[in-house]
Design a protein around this nucleic acid. Structure first.
Length: 580
RNA sequence: GCGCCUGUAGCUCAGCUGGAUAGAGCAACUGCCUUCUAAGCAGUGGGUCAGGAGUUCGAAUCUCUUCAGGCGCGCCA
């Protein structure tokens, strides 16, 4: 409908307005046509008069009047008002208004989808937590966000690929491995366990699954744990070195086993959280810098050849200052080992090589200083940094009522995503995460997320859906099947649903905006508003006491509201409830 | 010190590609169940949109600046 009017407006601008070509281009760029917030302003409104007026220096109201004359005779238009400083408010005739219901109901699950993305390939990389322990509540937010974004973009016509980057190659994995080995051989008392190691209970669980205990003897163990440095970081590094020296086979076995167990936990949790990935990318698959056939070698080699990377003080540096980074960054350390950054550069090159039109990285906001580096590396490799969008997600603080739940990863005391799911349920958790803009701090209040009242939006929205389902069931009991007629709305005899239909007609626009802005929370607030319109209607209108014809029209309108809520929740990865 | 983010009702937050009277919920006060789910609805009070300047026909929204808070600035990942 909006497209229809925009075509006529642009046609008018080009052929009849008398504006210069340059002005027309400027106007086209700036004006907007949208569904009104309030039916008093008609169904559709455009600021074209104001924009034309400001661009051409003419009176906005006169510009609006001229266009009004042009649009008033269009099919579907009942009347047009020039309002306020120069808005054009368009009132549709009943037939067109009613078409909104039938068209949307016919579209069913497809209502709200579009071809905005034109099949472009878009990759979303998210969660990507180090596989050193179970996911915690912080990761849950990224998971809910990335997954919802994927659903929204897919509904908007993008070909979406969701990916998890597994950091299986670095020091963190070594620390995981050594932590498991220390538990396996019970090397330390509880209070002297290396403070840099992982102490969660899952480490002990993993150690119980290692069956190669006899690969190492008492003397070797003694060597490994004696003469350790006092600095915690040096201590853990020494232990890693010692284990590798004494029992490389055991080391590798334990490392693989630990990684697989932890990754298994992560995958289970994500599946339970209804988050599916298309691809799990292993950092180790990038290979070693020393290997000329590896992806990491090839990426770095390319940067060196193009002059972006240079040697200094024995290390290989990437010039990232050229995109505004504070300082240049090291790719290959003095001792020849690649940095995490180098692997990430190769990873991003690989992403682009795989043919994605757009890349979205969902990162914890503590990584924001890292963005410029990656952008610089992309430019250095000859790609446009515009193809990458980094969406930062702030961490979530957990509250139980007013009390903050403290978490410490090191000590292994933390509230896991699994705990959260057990406590409040998957859908309530997903919804709560999505109910605030991703890059803002979120206080996750478990009490609130469990509460069953209006303050907890998920219940409010679900309640609207369930109420409609319940009405539908009652109606079916009395009439065998749902109605198909909307006669009394069509001929204007019954108007009480108009606000609801109008609100429901905004849905595709909201999906589109949340796809463009990459903001699922827009959907949350829209659904709240729609639910509110419904509850209000429901309270004022005893539906099943209406005339037969009115009932039919109402049931059809409410079915539309129900469809929008169900489709909207589905885009957030949440199932709509038929009963509560 | 440099960079990024935030500051809207007593509290928690929407609104921000500039637009028509700044919105919800909670809390306070008042009404509404012999009726389809009261997990709800309706109403009242509450705002110099942190302060200041600028751009504009028009600014919560854009620019600059001040103040306040958060985060990031490793040859860690």
């Amino acid at each position: 409908m909006i497209k229809f009017f925009n075509q006529h407006i642009e046609n008018f601008l080009v052929k009849e307005s008398g504006y210069s070509k340059e002005d027309v281009i400027l106007i086209k760029d700036k004006y907007k046509t949208e569904i009104t917030d309030d039916l008093k302003k008609g169904h559709i409104t455009t600021n074209i008069g104001l924009v034309s007026g400001s661009v051409t220096g003419t009176n906005p109201k006169e510009a609006a009047e001229a266009l009004k004359k042009n649009l008033i005779n269009l099919d579907g238009v009942d009347q047009i008002e020039v309002a306020g400083p120069g808005f054009l408010n368009i009132f549709l005739n009943r037939l067109y208004f009613v078409n909104l219901i039938t068209d949307s109901l016919n579209a069913k699950k497809a209502y709200g989808t579009s071809n905005l993305g034109e099949g472009k390939k878009i990759q979303i990389e998210f969660v990507s937590a180090n596989p050193t322990g179970p996911l915690h509540v912080g990761h849950g937010r990224g998971a809910a966000f990335g997954d919802a974004l994927g659903r929204i973009l897919e509904a908007s016509g993008y070909e979406v690929s969701k990916e998890y980057y597994i950091n299986d190659a670095g020091r963190q994995i070594d620390i995981l491995t050594v932590s498991v080995l220390l538990r396996l051989f019970k090397c330390f008392e509880e209070n002297s366990f290396p403070s840099s190691g992982y102490k969660g209970k899952y480490i002990i669980d993993i150690s119980n699954e290692i069956d190669k205990k006899d690969c190492i003897n008492e003397n070797q163990l003694k060597t490994i744990i004696s003469n350790l440095p006092s600095d915690p970081e040096e201590e853990i590094d020494a232990l890693i070195r010692n284990f590798k020296n004494e029992a490389i086979e055991l080391w590798e076995h334990t490392k693989n086993k630990s990684l697989n167990v932890v990754l298994g936990l992560i995958k289970e949790d994500l599946a339970a959280f209804k988050v599916d990935f298309n691809n799990w990318f292993y950092e180790s698959s990038l290979g070693a810098v020393g290997d000329k056939d590896s992806k990491i070698y090839s990426a770095i080699n390319q940067l060196e050849k193009s002059g972006q990377a240079y040697k200094e003080e024995g290390a290989l540096w990437l010039n990232t200052e050229n995109v505004g980074d504070d300082k240049n960054r090291v790719l290959i350390r003095e001792d020849g080992r690649a940095t995490y950054f180098a692997a990430d550069v190769a990873y991003h090159k690989d992403k682009v090589d795989r043919g994605f039109d757009r890349l979205i990285n969902v990162w914890g906001s503590d990584h924001h200083g890292y963005i410029k580096r990656i952008e610089s590396s992309l430019e250095g490799l000859g790609f446009s940094k515009e193809s990458l969008h980094v969406q930062l997600v702030q961490f979530a603080n957990l509250f139980q009522g007013k009390e903050k739940i403290k978490m410490s990863t090191r000590s292994g005391k933390f509230f896991t995503l699994r705990d959260l799911m057990d406590e409040i349920g998957v859908d309530a958790a997903r919804f709560y995460y999505l109910s605030k803009q991703a890059d803002q701090h979120l206080d996750f209040d478990i009490e609130l997320a469990k509460s069953q009242n209006k303050e907890n939006l998920i219940y409010y929205i679900q309640y609207a859906h369930a109420r409609i389902c319940s009405l539908q069931n009652k109606y079916i009991e009395l009439n065998d099947s749902l109605p198909t007629s909307i006669k009394s709305i069509e001929d204007g005899a019954y108007l009480a649903c108009d606000k609801l239909i109008h609100e429901a007609s905004k849905f595709p626009g909201v999906v589109e905006r949340s796809a463009v802005a990459l903001q699922p929370h827009l959907l949350v607030f829209y659904l709240r508003d729609l639910a509110h319109q419904f509850h209000s209607f429901y309270n004022d209108n005893p539906v099943l006491k209406e005339s037969k014809e009115n009932q039919e029209s109402i049931l059809q309108s409410l079915n539309l509201v129900r469809l929008v809520i169900a489709n909207g929740l589905n885009l957030l990865g949440i199932d709509a409830l038929e009963k509560m």
